[in-house]
Simulated scan of single mutants.
Amino acid sequence: MSTIDERLAELGITLPAVAAPVAAYIPALVSGNLVFTSGQLPMVEGVLPATGKLGAAVSAEEGKELARQCALNALAAVESVIGSLDRVTRIVKLVGFVASDPSFTGQPGVINGASDVLGEIFGDAGVHARSAVGVSVLPLDSPVELELIVEFA
């Protein structure tokens, strides 16, 4: 068992299968020593567990859990193109999009759900640059979407 697999087991995390694309793209692409993920929705077994906007139909706490699921889906996509998450040397950047009611301003707290789990899994290598952006709507009415840029050896 790999080091990251052991860490995932300690945390009680099982990476999902790579989410099937909902349009014309691939889940992740390698360029040099970087992996770029496509936008990852919080799919669980092919289904969005919630839809709608943060601050209206979706609570900030629920959004945080959805962002965590997006990060796990992104890691599954990364693993699919590099073979093992043990090859990850740094989570470089996370870009998070939060479908937001006009009065909702808690986007950073929502995206912390993704940042926190990356730190739990990778330790110092999981500390990353980040953007947390409020948007009016996301694909399939998803509350959250995120992209990762990951460095690997």
Rank of each mutant, 00 (worst) to 15 (best):
A50Y: 06
T3C: 05
I121R: 00
L94N: 02
R7K: 13
G12C: 05
T14S: 02
V44E: 14
L48H: 04
G55L: 07
H128F: 14
S136I: 14
G63S: 11
Q40P: 01
E6H: 13
Q107K: 10
S31P: 01
G46W: 09
A153V: 15
T37E: 05
V144I: 13
S136E: 14
H128N: 13
L138H: 14
E120V: 00
V78K: 15
R68W: 00
R87Q: 15
T14V: 03
G32Q: 08
C70I: 09
I13C: 00
S2D: 11
V78L: 15
A132V: 05
A60M: 15
A50G: 04
A153P: 08
A57P: 01
L15G: 02
L75C: 03
D86N: 12
Q107P: 02
P49V: 02
G106M: 08
E61D: 12
E145T: 06
A132D: 13
I4D: 10
L72N: 05
P21K: 07
L146G: 07
F122K: 00
T51R: 14
E45G: 09
V144R: 12
E10F: 00
V117S: 01
F104T: 07
D116Y: 06
C70N: 09
P139R: 06
T51V: 15
I82Q: 12
S103H: 11
L48I: 06
A129F: 09
A20H: 04
V47H: 11
G113W: 03
V127E: 12
I26R: 09
D86P: 11
A74H: 01
G12I: 01
V110Q: 05
L54I: 11
I13G: 00
Q107N: 12
L94R: 06
A99Q: 07
A24W: 05
P102H: 15
G46H: 09
F122Q: 00
F97D: 03
D124Y: 06
D141I: 03
M1S: 11
S131A: 10
E79V: 04
F36S: 08
A76I: 03
Q40A: 13
K53T: 08
A99K: 07
A28M: 09
F152E: 12
K53S: 15
E151A: 08
I26V: 12
R87T: 06
I111R: 03
G134D: 02
L29R: 14
A24Y: 08
E147V: 02
R87I: 04
L29N: 14
N112F: 10
L29K: 13
Y25K: 03
A19Y: 00
V44N: 01
G46R: 09
L146E: 08
E79P: 06
I121K: 00
K64G: 10
A129G: 10
D141Y: 12
G109K: 10
A99I: 06
V18W: 04
G83M: 13
V47I: 15
A71Y: 01
V144S: 07
L66P: 04
S136G: 13
V98M: 13
P16F: 02
V95L: 03
G55W: 08
S100I: 08
V44Y: 01
A57Q: 10
R87Y: 13
G96A: 05
Y25E: 10
G39W: 13
S115F: 00
